[in-house]
């Protein structure tokens, strides 16, 4: 089973929940994989502190034009919706920083003058933390295209009955790439107007992608009740509520796992896991 943990709003506690959930499964003696899909700012490793056993480059393919074969017809530039190709006179220019590696230009070229070459965009790291199989991706500084790195992280997932995907914030391409194919999407939110605003976007995204969705309300006793009202209205199940507790923040600041450091979080993670595994939702 693949459980993706996303939020919409940043800083709601995705990594706290994802790492704590993985830790809880491992404590039970079961195999579990934790994938940090937030390749622009991966931080799961700070809490799981895995022993990294393998590092390898992540690459993506970008087009190169064979100037001998190129007939300067402009078909590649026309098909490129990311506007990464310019045809001027007898020159065909490729701007790799705009390229999304879709391969469309290869298909469009009637001369078969376009090939693809891999360019490095980041590093894939795999390792282990206690019983948790750990994978993350670290995107190179200055690299704008994160989805190929996220794909690499997902492809490197070790076989385990439960896979937890710690997703980036937001609801745009990197998140779509991360949550695609999951069996359950857990949306971590907080009971604030900002939390609710982004929760709505994330729920709409989940519905568009036809994903099973459940909500975890973090810092549940702060803020207002609007998140509960919304979840009831839209029939989104609330699977866990975690109270606002300074002990959680202090553990976080020391790089400790919330479920290891704070007993009531451990209890709630076990309960959340039971709900997920009961199959009522997924």
């Amino acid at each position: 089973m693949r459980v993706a943990i996303a939020s919409g709003k940043g800083g709601t506690g995705k990594t706290t929940i994802a790492t704590s959930l993985a830790y809880t499964v491992a404590q039970r003696g079961d195999r579990v994989a934790y994938l940090d899909c937030d390749v622009e700012e991966p931080n799961g490793h700070l809490f799981l502190q895995p022993q990294i056993v393998d590092r390898r480059p992540i690459t993506r393919l970008v087009p190169v034009v064979d100037p001998v074969r190129c007939a300067h017809c402009g078909a590649c530039a026309q098909v490129c919706r990311y506007r990464a190709i310019a045809c001027v006179g007898e020159r065909t220019l490729i701007f790799t920083e705009l390229c999304h590696s879709c391969g469309g230009c290869l298909l469009a070229c009637p001369q078969e003058a376009i090939g693809e070459v891999p360019v490095p965009i980041g590093t894939l790291r795999t390792g282990r933390s206690g019983g948790v199989e750990f994978v993350d991706g670290v995107l190179n500084v200055g690299e704008a295209m994160s989805p190929p790195a996220i794909r690499a992280v997902k492809q490197a997932a070790p076989d385990a009955p439960l896979t937890i995907l710690d997703c980036p914030p937001g609801t745009s391409c990197p998140v779509i790439e991360s949550v695609r194919g999951c069996d359950l999407l857990l949306l971590v939110t907080e009971p604030t107007p900002f939390g609710l605003h982004d929760l709505k976007l994330a729920v709409e995204m989940a519905r568009t992608l036809r994903l099973e969705v459940g909500v975890v309300i973090n810092r549940a006793d702060a803020g207002d009740r609007a998140v509960w009202d919304y979840c009831q209205q839209r029939r989104v199940p609330i699977l866990a509520e975690i109270p606002d507790d300074r002990a959680v923040a202090e553990a976080y600041s020391r790089g400790e796992l919330a479920a290891q450091a704070v007993p009531h979080v451990a209890d709630r993670m076990r309960a959340l896991l039971a709900t997920i595994e009961s199959g009522v939702l997924a």
């Binding site: 530039a77 990311y82 506007r83 310019a86 001027v88």
Partner: peptide
């Protein structure tokens, strides 16, 4: 890509 398109 506005600049590239404009240049073309």
């Amino acid at each position: 890509g506005a600049g590239i398109q404009a240049a073309q």
